[in-house]
Write a protein that binds this DNA or RNA. Structure first.
Lengths: 109, 109
DNA sequence: TGCGGATATGTCAAATATGACATATACTGC
DNA sequence: GCAGTATATGTCATATTTGACATATCCGCA
C-alpha cells in the first residue's frame, strides 16, 4: 500500500506533481526523503530544546528567518547541507545527529 | 595544534584560499567537513565493496563518471545531497549510513 | 480590541551545484 | 609498444539553492 508513503511525503511539505511521481519513487529516493524528515524533526526539536527562535538560529547559520521556517516546513528548495548546518548550529552533537539517522519508525514497505 | 585540521581538509580536496580561512573554521563548519569526509569514505568503500565502477554508480544516480570522481575526491562543488544519494545508490543500508556518521576518529581538538 | 513576538509563505536576483563533455592519467594484458 | 578499462581534472551552460525581503498568520497579553 503505497498511499501511506505518499501521505508522508505530502505531510513533509512536498507538493505532489502527481501521485504517479510519488508512487514511482525509487527506494533510494524514499530513503533520502525519510532521512530529510528525520533531520528536519531533529532541527525543530533541538532548536526548541535550546530555546532558540527561528531568527536566532538564522543568525547562527547566516541565513534568514524565512529560510529557517522553510527548513522546518520541509520545503523542497532546502538542501540537505542547509538542514545539517542548521542542526549543528542548534548545538546538536554528532551523536544527536546520528540518532536522527536512526530509523525510529519504519516506512510501510 | 590546528595544523592537523588544515592538513585533513586539504587531504580532502579542499583548496585553501588561505590558512587563515581554515583556522577560522567554526566548530560547526569543522563538524560539517568531518561529516562529509566520513560519508565520502563510506561511498568509496561501499562502491568498491559492491564491485561498482564509477561509471556504473554514475548511471544509478543519473550523473556522470566525472561527478562521481569529484564526489570521492571531496570536491567542494559537491553537495551533501549528492554524496548521500551516491551512498544509498551503492546499496548501502541505513545502518551503514548511520555508521558513516559515527565519529570513529576524533579531530584533534 | 490592538500590540508584539514568533512563525509561515511567496518572490526574486545572485550564488552555487549540476550533468555532460573533453581530455589526462594510471594500470592491465597483450 | 598499443588497446582497453578505470579514474582524475577542467570547463561550461543550465538547473537548483540561496539570503533577503515583503507580507501574512498565529498567539498570548494588556
Amino acid at each position: 500500500m503505497k498511499t501511506g508513503k505518499l501521505k508522508r511525503l505530502q505531510a513533509a511539505g512536498w507538493k505532489a506533481g502527481s501521485a504517479q511521481d510519488f508512487l514511482q519513487l525509487s527506494d533510494e529516493e524514499a530513503m533520502l526523503v525519510e532521512l530529510r524528515l528525520s533531520l528536519i524533526g531533529a532541527v525543530k526539536q533541538s532548536r526548541q530544546k535550546h530555546g532558540l527562535s527561528q531568527s536566532e538560529l538564522a543568525k547562527r547559520i547566516k541565513s534568514s528567518q524565512s529560510r529557517v521556517a522553510k527548513i522546518e516546513a520541509g520545503d523542497p528548495s532546502v538542501s540537505l547541507d542547509l538542514i545539517v548546518r542548521a542542526l549543528f548550529a542548534t548545538g546538536a552533537t554528532r551523536q544527536e545527529l546520528q540518532r536522527a539517522f536512526s530509523p525510529k519508525e519504519r516506512l510501510a514497505a
